[in-house]
């Protein structure tokens, strides 16, 4: 007996899906099933009309060329995403969409690409890419493991809190030790690898929030995370 159905909406899977972003969608779908819920996955691509029934929104990273393709559509759906975020809708934004969820991206040559302002943060193009394994700690989710590969450096404003504090790697930028951002039920991060498989606490936070918003209460099932724990332990021991 299914306890309910959750609709997962993947943003721009064609253009913004470069570092295994599908892994995050797959983890949400499978863990929902293990918790006893059904999952319906749909996509929003440039030019589509934005659906009304999404319970959980997820978006990934892309190349510069991919970001150009989605830019206009993202601006068009930006007010909807902002409204949903303020209303408590759970969302996960990784890498490229993390940047565009902010206020703007200023490239190295000074061009300003507007973001959609879901998150109070800004990104500045850097000359050097920040690449490598990352370990970060968060009061909310414990130790977070992932891999970063970005040239934009992100700085948080007063309206968001960092997702975690970096203990290995760079995270948001090369200056402070922040990684990612949190605001209401939006989780944003530079980390892929993919993020959710090795960080099931974040996956279950998104799931619990989506189910509670829709059904009032969340009844978790038994999920065995032994493999994720072992994968985390090994990832943590690898060189940068």
């Amino acid at each position: 007996m299914s306890k309910g159905t959750i609709s997962i909406l993947q943003l721009y899977p064609r253009e913004m899906n470069i570092y295994g972003d599908w892994g995050n969608v797959l983890v949400l779908k499978q863990r929902l099933a293990w918790h006893g819920y059904d999952a319906v996955i749909s996509e929003h691509n440039a030019g589509d009309s934005f659906p009304d029934d999404a319970d959980l929104i997820i978006g990934g990273g892309g190349q510069d060329s991919g970001q150009l393709v989605i830019q206009e559509d993202l601006q068009a759906i930006g007010p909807r995403l902002r409204g949903l975020a303020e209303d408590g809708q759970p969302m996960l934004a990784i890498c490229g969409l993390y940047q565009l969820f902010g206020k703007f991206f200023r490239t190295v040559d000074g061009t300003v690409i507007p973001g959609i302002g879901v998150l109070d943060l800004e990104t500045h193009g850097g000359k050097e890419r920040l690449i490598g394994n990352v370990v970060a700690t968060s009061g909310e989710f414990g130790e977070i493991h992932g891999y970063e590969n970005h040239s934009g450096q992100t700085f948080l404003g007063a309206g968001v809190t960092p997702l975690a504090t970096v203990t290995k790697g760079e995270g948001n930028n090369a200056r402070d030790n922040h990684e990612g951002a949190r605001h209401h039920n939006v989780v944003a991060s530079y980390l892929h690898g993919s993020l959710l498989p090795k960080n099931p606490a974040i996956a279950d936070f998104l799931i619990r929030t989506a189910v509670e918003r829709k059904y009032g209460t969340f009844e978790p099932g038994e999920v065995d995370d032994t493999l994720a724990d072992l994968a985390r332990r090994h990832a943590g021991s690898r060189p940068r």
């Binding site: 570092y19 295994g20 891999y147 590969n149 892929h192 990832a235 060189p239």
Partner: peptide, 15 residues
Amino acid sequence: NDNYADGRDMSWLWD
């Protein structure tokens, strides 16, 4: 393996 010659990032397994 994730040695330098293999690439350190495991994201690709999810593709």
